[in-house]
Amino acid sequence: MKVALTGNSHVWSLRRGSGPPGLDALVFGLGNGKYERRPFTHLSEDGVVLDVPQYAEALTRATGLRAIDTSFVWGFCSVNHNSRLYRDDTWLAYEPAAIRRGDRVAVSEELLRTMIESDQAGVRALFDHLLEAGVDFFAISAPPPRRDNNGIRKGIRPEVVRYVDRTAREIWATWLDERKIPVLQPPPSTVDDEGFLLEGYHSEVVRNGVPDRHHASAEYGTVVMAQVADHVSSKVDVA
């Protein structure tokens, strides 16, 4: 069984992590997750075509394919990329009504859900297209937020980050469950009691003098790759 793991920049930790013996997986990133907010795919006779040039080129470069098809079992690290939500400047002036402080404007549950579902629109469309094309795939969650993420650093309360992230994860989980799409959640051993990524799994990369406060480390990737191996082997067992 050929396995391909791809998605946004969070694939980086999987790529740097070590897969367990026996897992033969092609791991490559498609590109920046900012394109995931809007539908970026369409169906063709060849499979699911990526409309974002950066993504399409990355796919072809890594696999030789022009469309995502049935030649691999695919793992998409494209869900729970909630940093687009929780570190947005919105939360400097607004907060979810359930936890808001008096000096912030309340955002209702329905309004928050609407913003989250809008953020998930592009990946939802990708997954619907994959289902329609009969592609065998599973979802891989992005890691949980880091306590030192740039949203918190610019003044967003950690409680708000947690709330928005948790709500978005619940919404994703429900959506995926309704379609029976398997999803690999962050391994519990990597997450602290409040839902943040344990510091030991933080990426320590510094680019152009700027520390990465967003991604997980290669060690995190190694733990997730073990999950991937378990998931893939369970498919083989079933088969």
Binding site: A97, A98, A106, E109, L111
Partner: peptide, 15 residues
């Protein structure tokens, strides 16, 4: 103003 209404009294009042 909220297409499906507010979920809780708390958020209704806050809004």
């Amino acid at each position: 103003i909220e297409p499906n209404g507010f979920a809780t009294t708390q958020e209704f009042e806050a809004s």
